[in-house]
Amino acid sequence: MAAVSPERSAFSAIVIRDLTLAFRHRGEIANPLIFFVMVATLIPLGVTPEARQLAEIAPGIIWVMALLATLLSTETLFLSDFRDGSLEQMALSSESLWVLVLAKILVHWLISGLPLTLLSPLLGVMLSLPAEGFLTMVASLALGTAALSLIGAIGAALTVAIPRGGLLLSLIVMPLYMPVLIFGASAVQQAVDGMAVGGALAVLGALLAFSLLISPFAAAGALRVSLHG
């Protein structure tokens, strides 16, 4: 990579670095997506292949699976930087840590939430989601997974120093995910039922704005705890 020019802000430097790193390990981006599709295959096998019944549960199931897939990828958010010491350097740099954390969260969404959102129509087809629900599903997942990435970052920062902290991360983050799940799945359900979805989507947006406010600071504080005890 070319030398970082001084005028480039720390934020974009981290974004470019993390995107570069992510594209050199493409497998890690693909894994949550494969998980997403595989679990979608388990539902007809375990519940019913009957289209009408699948359509009834599709909005909730797709949202739950998206949540779990996001959760899977959250563990790696700070892990490699913590292990090789880059995180320590970021904490020592003159830039505010929350700016760098926000950049890392943005990249995390770009490589996990965004692909999940783009892949979700395929799952909609697999689970016979009624046609009216597709647009809202994509919109709600785009907003919702961003909120999930932000909330998950707090958990990832708190557990990064703990060996095998992945399961613990799920335990502490899942209760905080619940409002996003409620409004995301409801938005899709309302679209399927032919009702107005503006309200639920607006609340999702509000949840995103709220997590954008508190999450970078909480995650930066948690990282300092993880780094220095």
Binding site: I154, P175, L176, P179, F183, F210, A218, V225, S226, G229
Partner: peptide, 23 residues
């Protein structure tokens, strides 16, 4: 570290409790 980390988590949870209840 345990004390500080769980304090951060408790505070984040507190900010979320009203949201969780309302939703």
């Amino acid at each position: 570290a345990a004390s500080k980390a769980s304090a951060v988590l408790a505070l984040v949870g507190t900010a979320n409790i009203p949201i969780i209840y309302k939703s």
